[in-house]
């Protein structure tokens, strides 16, 4: 579903933020992407979803190149950033409807999915309010719902559990698993290693823009905990 080939991103006047990074996310995978602050996770994620250009390499999504066919790639992606800056001048339902229109989600299906996810995240009653009145967590929930209503083949999330209450975090994990069981793939960054260890099938560790470990969870962590492996690799690699 997602193939990152030799991705390199250099910010002008800076060293390489991402350095020759390659990885593959298969259909059905929940792929965790972990690393220190500033390791290059967000840069990689932004390049994958087509909102940041890069200097070398290519990214294939559902066999389409993000460079050659960005609109085609984005049609199958949903992205949730680490900080959900949404359109504050819209109400929650207006925003969801806007996303539904852009992704051409059929009316009946849209209504059913919004109802399902908004109820699950306990936000239905607030959908008529302006987004500017939402708390950080409510915005995060709205961003999650907007990502799920168009049934993405690839869901890309940057620190998705930050700001969510424990119940919403649990609900999100349930839907992430449900989405992958239906054949989609998930690529997400997190600092919560316990969550990554429990949730992910595969994991990649990035340090200073370079991939230092990648594979199935069992391959990467062996008999240790993911936390131990992460600390060992990032401290000594």
């Amino acid at each position: 579903m997602l193939i990152i080939k030799n991705l390199t991103k250099i910010y002008k006047g800076s060293k390489k933020a991402v350095d020759n990074l390659s990885l593959t996310v298969e259909n059905g995978d929940i792929f965790g992407f972990i690393g220190h602050n500033g390791a290059g996770k967000t840069t990689t994620i932004k390049a994958v979803v087509g909102i940041l250009d890069f200097d070398e390499g290519d990214i294939e999504i559902d066999s389409m190149s993000i460079l050659q066919n960005p609109v085609g790639c984005k049609q199958v992606i949903a992205y949730i950033p680490d900080n959900p800056d949404l359109y504050e001048h819209l109400t929650g339902i207006q925003y969801l409807n806007f996303v539904g229109d852009i992704f051409a989600v059929e009316k009946a299906e849209r209504e059913a999915l919004i109802s399902k996810y908004a109820d699950a995240f306990e936000i239905t009653r607030n959908l008529g309010d302006m987004i500017s009145s939402y708390s950080h967590g409510m915005k995060q929930k709205l961003a999650v719902i907007s990502a799920l209503i168009h049934k993405p083949r690839l869901l890309v999330l940057d620190e998705p559990f930050v700001g969510l209450d424990p119940k919403a975090a649990h609900t999100l994990k349930t839907y992430m698993r449900e989405l992958c069981d239906s054949g989609s793939a998930i690529f997400f960054s997190t600092h919560v290693l316990e969550v990554a260890e429990k949730l992910c099938d595969k994991v990649a560790i990035i340090k200073q823009g370079r991939l230092i470990a990648s594979g199935t969870m069992e391959d990467v962590k062996g008999n240790s905990s993911l936390e131990d492996v992460f600390l060992e690799l990032t401290d000594h690699a």
Binding site: G92, I93, N97, G100, D101, V105, E106, K107, R110, E111, I114, S115, A118, T124, R125, N126, L127, G128, D129
Partner: peptide, 8 residues
């Protein structure tokens, strides 16, 4: 708010 009919 209650989910109402949405326009596409």
């Amino acid at each position: 708010y209650k989910i109402q009919e949405l326009k596409q």
